[in-house]
């Protein structure tokens, strides 16, 4: 992964020099380890700050909504799928974009690393190993063991739409059960499900970091902020918390690419993907639909087909 950076910089500088784009969106080193932050490079010199490693999990498609400039964007598989969704939803023009596709080998879950010791000083990587240095800690770990949950079952690591690829496409998992996590919950009884989600959301502080990190959540006024009528309370009442997560997931039905940005952004470590995952699976099972794979087909929830499933209607 880290060897991509030279090529990324080279392409970015080239398109800025040629005035193909007004800026390039990429990542730069964050202030703490494993927290790379988005970087908007407007000049060739800005590009030198770019980095690429296993901590670039933020979905950069989030920064494209409604932009009018010409933009170069460095995009992983999931990012490109969200870019496709943005184009389909008229949030950005394809012509304005120069997509630098990055075949992705998965991103490291910083929580798994943070669990190793209290303070991490540095995390570096070399090929398939990650070297973690921290308080009384100096360890080499396998990258594969530290991946984000969504990356372990990802079947679209390669960009689906791009102007240029920085490396050859990576091998796609074929031996994983993509829906194992959803099936586990589906197998539960009604009461069990209820208490499972009770436990899951107990920690939620309603900071809306998941909403802000999500490229799909671009509504000018979110339903939680509406006051006429006010659909739900603003506090930490468990019904309100549940309503928020539930409706947010609903708004992502048929659009979510399981990029994991929401779970990654959560300060209390809730994996709210369990909500969106179910809808993702339903879309796949009912309509054979996976979000953001093509520009040519309208999503199932805004079209009608005579053979749409309707067994649930009386």
């Amino acid at each position: 992964m880290i060897d991509y950076i030279d090529k990324i910089k080279q392409i970015s500088k080239q398109i800025l020099t040629d005035c193909r784009v007004d800026m390039v969106i990429g990542f730069r080193q964050g202030t703490v380890p494993m927290m790379n932050e988005p970087c908007f490079a407007k000049t060739v010199d800005d590009v030198d700050a770019f980095v690429w490693d296993s901590h670039c999990g933020i979905n950069l498609a989030n920064y494209l909504t409604g932009r009018k400039e010409k933009i170069g964007i460095i995009a992983k598989g999931c990012d490109t799928r969200n870019i496709v969704t943005h184009i389909i939803e008229n949030k950005i023009d394809r012509d304005r974009l120069y997509i630098i596709g990055v075949p992705c080998r998965g991103m490291v879950d910083r929580r798994k690393v943070n669990a190793l010791c209290d303070s991490i000083y540095e995390v570096t990587e070399q090929g398939d190993t990650v070297k973690v240095t921290g308080e009384n800690l100096d360890r080499q770990l396998a990258r594969a063991d530290l991946l984000q949950e969504n990356c372990t079952t990802c079947v679209h690591p390669n960009p689906v739409i791009y102007d240029e690829l920085v490396a050859d496409e990576v091998e796609v998992h074929t031996d994983v059960d993509r829906w194992a996590d959803v099936k586990k919950i589906e197998a539960m009884g009604s009461d069990e499900k209820w208490s499972y989600f009770d436990d899951l959301l107990k920690e939620c502080i309603r900071c809306y970091a998941c909403r802000n990190a999500c490229p799909l959540c671009y509504c000018p006024t979110c339903f939680v902020d509406e006051s006429k009528p006010q659909w739900m309370g603003k506090g930490q009442d468990e019904t309100d918390v549940r309503t928020f997560h539930f409706l947010r997931a609903y708004h992502c039905a048929g659009r979510c690419t399981d990029c994991g940005a929401c779970a990654r952004a959560c300060p209390v470590g809730i994996d709210m993907r369990v909500f969106t995952r179910k809808l993702e699976k339903d879309c796949f099972d009912l309509y054979g639909w996976e979000a953001g794979l093509t520009l040519d087909v309208r999503p199932p929830l805004d079209t009608y087909q005579a053979d749409d499933p309707e067994e649930f209607i009386k």
């Binding site: 659909w231 019904t239 309503t243 409706l247």
Partner: peptide, 10 residues
């Protein structure tokens, strides 16, 4: 809208 159904239950 899904929120109508939820509002009713709430």
């Amino acid at each position: 809208d899904p929120k109508f159904a939820l509002a009713a239950l709430r």
